[in-house]
Each structure stands twice: as C-alpha cells, then as structure tokens.
Amino acid sequence: MQGVVKVNSALNMRSGPGSNYGVIGTLRNNDKVEIIKEVDGWYEIRFNGKVGSASKSYITIVN
C-alpha cells in the first residue's frame, strides 16, 4: 500500500510506533512512502530504504 505525507513542514520518522521512540529520519510534504502495516495509530513505513514509523494522521493512502 502506498501513502503520501501531508504536513506543513516536516514529519519525524521514528524507530517505533510512538513519540517516545528515537527519530531516524524526516519526511517532507508530498513524500511518497510504502505502508507496511498499522500499529496503534501509527504506520510502519518504508522510505528511502529505511523502515520506521510515522503517525497515520499525516499520511494519506493512495491507490
């Protein structure tokens, strides 16, 4: 499943599904990500070869 980031500035990509996990990357508006699965309001995603988590509130699913 594919998604597109929708933010005003930037979205942190984290090492796990929650804001208490470390930041491993930064996503910008309109970045395209691969959604692997949903976990507690977060998506596990793949972006630029990295796997991490980002809040699903800022990612829109595209077909």
Rank of each mutant, 00 (worst) to 15 (best):
V51C: 09
R28H: 13
N29I: 07
G49M: 06
K50G: 06
N29L: 09
S53V: 12
V62E: 10
V7A: 11
S15H: 05
D40V: 05
I24E: 03
V62Q: 09
I36C: 07
D40P: 06
D31A: 08
G52H: 02
M13I: 15
K56E: 04
I24D: 00
E34I: 11
D40A: 09
V4Q: 07
K56W: 04
T60E: 14
N48R: 12
T60I: 14
M13T: 01
G49D: 09
K50P: 02
T60W: 14
G52A: 06
I45W: 00
I61F: 06
N20D: 12
G16N: 03
S19N: 14
A54C: 12
M13N: 01
S55M: 15
S53F: 15
D31V: 06
N63M: 12
F47G: 01
I35C: 05
T60R: 12
S9A: 11
Y58I: 05
A54Y: 03
K6A: 08
M1W: 13
Y58W: 09
G22R: 13
V7I: 10
I59T: 00
E38P: 01
G52Q: 02
G16H: 03
E34N: 06
L11I: 15
I59P: 02
V4H: 05
G22D: 15
K32L: 15
G18K: 02
E38Y: 06
N20T: 10
D31R: 03
S53C: 15
V39A: 08
S57W: 13
L11T: 11
R28T: 08
I59C: 05
S57T: 12
Q2A: 11
S55G: 10
R14M: 12
T60S: 11
Y43G: 00
V62F: 09
R46A: 08
E38H: 05
K56Q: 05
L27S: 00
F47N: 01
V23N: 03
M1A: 10
E44P: 00
V23A: 05
G49A: 05
G52M: 04
R14K: 04
I24N: 03
N30M: 10
V4S: 04
W42E: 00
Y43A: 01
Y58G: 13
N63V: 12
G18L: 01
N48H: 10
S53Q: 06
I45K: 00
N29Q: 08
E34Y: 12
G16F: 02
R46I: 14
K50W: 09
V51I: 13
V62N: 07
R28C: 14
G3P: 02
N8Q: 12
M13A: 03
N20C: 13
G3M: 04
V5A: 04
W42Y: 10
T60Y: 14
G16M: 03
K50V: 14
G18T: 00
S55I: 14
L27G: 01
N30L: 10
I24S: 03
S57L: 14
P17M: 05
E38G: 04
N48E: 12
G3Y: 05
V39C: 10
G25Q: 08
Q2N: 10
F47M: 05
S53T: 10
R46L: 12
V4M: 09
I36Q: 04
V7C: 15
W42A: 01
G18W: 00
T60N: 11
S57K: 15
V4T: 08
N63C: 13
M13Q: 01
G41F: 05
V23F: 04
N48A: 11
L11M: 11
M1G: 07
R46T: 08
V23L: 06
T26S: 09
N8G: 12
G25F: 08
I45A: 01
T26W: 09
S53W: 15
G3D: 03
P17L: 03
V7M: 04
I36F: 08
I45N: 00
G22C: 13
S15W: 06
L27P: 01
W42K: 00
G49N: 09
N30T: 05
V51T: 11
T26M: 11
I24T: 06
G25S: 07
R46M: 12
S15Q: 08
I45P: 00
D31Y: 06
D40T: 06
V7D: 03
S57A: 14
V23C: 08
V7F: 06
G16W: 03
E34L: 11
L27Y: 00
G22H: 13
N63R: 11
N20F: 10
V62K: 06
D40L: 08
G49Y: 05
V33C: 05
E34M: 10
A10I: 15
A54K: 01
P17S: 05
